[in-house]
Computed example of a mutant assay.
Amino acid sequence: MKILYHHRIGSKDGQFVHIAELIRALEQEGAEVVVVGPRSVEQQSFGGETGFVSALKRWLPRALYEVLELAYSAHDYRRLRRAIAEHRPDVIYERYNLFFVSGAWARKRFGVPLLLEVNAPLLDERSRYGGIALRGLARWSERQAWRGADHVFTVTSVLAQRIGREGVPLQRISVTPNGIDPQQYLTLPVRAEAKCRLGLDGRLVLGFTGFVREWHGLESILDLMAQHPDLNLHLLLVGDGPARPALEARADTLGVADRVTFTGVVEREQVPSHVVAFDVALQPAVVPYASPLKLFEYLAAGCAIVAPASENIREILTHEANALLFDPEKPAQRAAAIVRLATDESLRARLGEAATATISELGLTWRANAKVVLDVAEQSVDRRSERAATREATGEP
């Protein structure tokens, strides 16, 4: 199976991780993968973004930037056309982006089946967090991409239902959550050793990985630490983000700065050795359709997890079984769950063991996802061949 992997990401972050891990898993399953996407992302350090694109976002009027996003599809279509002619892929596998319709155009022009991976309803997301100037054009581009695909892969059932409401039949949608590579967790140190390596031995470590934003609400964790000095809590933040300066200032104000570690951006291969040091892993606020990459890292590392009881999270976690869940509208429940875990070592151990087992029980690995993708790809190729044979038999153009 030859797959043309098509994307438009410009930042080396969680999106890049997803792409790299799935491509590797597809190749491990015997597929040949050809990538068509911005080459600049490969040269960036982890956590970086293309400087030119960042500058455009900052300085151009929003409407003009969105027109340029769509215009990129025309430029990209020419590259995609050349790649199809050169490599003759069996299918195109595309990571969805807003104003990105070149894959749908190529599918219509060349008849190559298009498999579309959707990680977020980006029109909704950008409208809420950044703003959309050309909403009608954005909505048109989103529908072109979603409805123009032969099959859609979503990271949660919540997102699958959202896309179904836009006219994509549910039988053409498969749910493939984020995952992990179990091999990366086989040789990790035990928790006590991991904490010792990080200079945190003797502490009860609360951990978070990823890009730290204000809406994660991590300032309340600092408040909790200040309120419970007897629990010997230490907050380990593996990553960086716009909320870091405010968190550092609050930690100073509360007198807990010596019990907070900000690692800054950590290379991907080093993340598991940090996560395994977490006694309690924090999944704070989450958008309702997301499949947080950090959640699967927490599971694989055998952490006791505290997470919101939103519908998308409950697709993976069950309260009291493999995590403690809290009502997102009642932050006091999160604090109570953390205190409960901090004071109950046996509960931490039980939830941690169940977390590790969840990976195999639900098949939360990149290779499991790759197998689903390849199965759908083979079915799509077969249907294309059947349609071609029917046209030939009936004389249809």
Rank of each mutant, 00 (worst) to 15 (best):
R348H: 11
R383W: 01
I338G: 01
Y93M: 03
A257C: 02
V91L: 09
R350G: 10
Y298F: 08
A290H: 12
A85S: 13
I221K: 13
R139H: 10
V372P: 01
L362Y: 05
D76A: 14
L374P: 10
D382H: 12
A74Q: 12
A85F: 11
R213G: 10
E311I: 08
G255R: 10
I92H: 04
R348L: 05
Y93Q: 06
Y289P: 04
R128Q: 08
H87W: 10
P245I: 05
V280R: 02
A301R: 03
M1Q: 06
Q15F: 07
P177W: 04
R387Q: 11
K57Q: 14
I92N: 07
L206S: 11
L351P: 07
K330D: 08
L116I: 06
R143N: 10
G164Q: 05
L362G: 01
S291I: 02
A336F: 01
Y72Q: 14
K294W: 08
N97A: 15
H75E: 11
V287Q: 12
E21S: 08
K57T: 08
L341A: 10
L114P: 05
V373G: 10
N312R: 02
T318N: 05
L137R: 05
A55C: 06
P292R: 06
T209K: 13
F208R: 09
A389N: 10
G51R: 11
E378R: 15
R213E: 10
S141P: 01
N97Y: 09
H228V: 03
C303P: 00
R8C: 03
L224A: 05
V36A: 11
G148C: 02
G179S: 14
G363F: 04
V175N: 06
F208V: 15
A194L: 11
I338H: 02
E166T: 07
M225Q: 12
V36N: 07
Y129P: 00
P242Q: 14
A83D: 08
V155Y: 02
G10D: 01
R244V: 15
Q161I: 06
L236D: 00
Q161D: 13
D382A: 14
Q270H: 15
Q28A: 13
W140Y: 02
L22F: 04
V265P: 03
Y298N: 01
R107W: 04
V158D: 04
P242I: 14
A71C: 12
R250G: 04
G130H: 15
V256K: 05
N369L: 08
A355P: 06
G264R: 03
A71T: 06
V381E: 02
E320P: 02
Q283H: 15
E32P: 06
V271L: 04
E386L: 12
Q28G: 12
G131R: 09
Q15E: 06
R147P: 00
E27F: 07
A160K: 09
Q227L: 15
I3W: 07
D90Y: 07
E69G: 08
P272G: 11
T253C: 08
E311K: 14
Q43C: 00
V53G: 14
V212H: 15
I9M: 00
V372L: 14
R147C: 02
R88E: 12
Y129V: 00
E269F: 13
W146N: 00
L247H: 00
A226C: 09
R203F: 15
Q28M: 12
L224S: 12
V265I: 13
S45E: 03
V155L: 09
C196F: 09
R139V: 03
L134I: 09
Y289K: 10
L80V: 03
T343H: 04
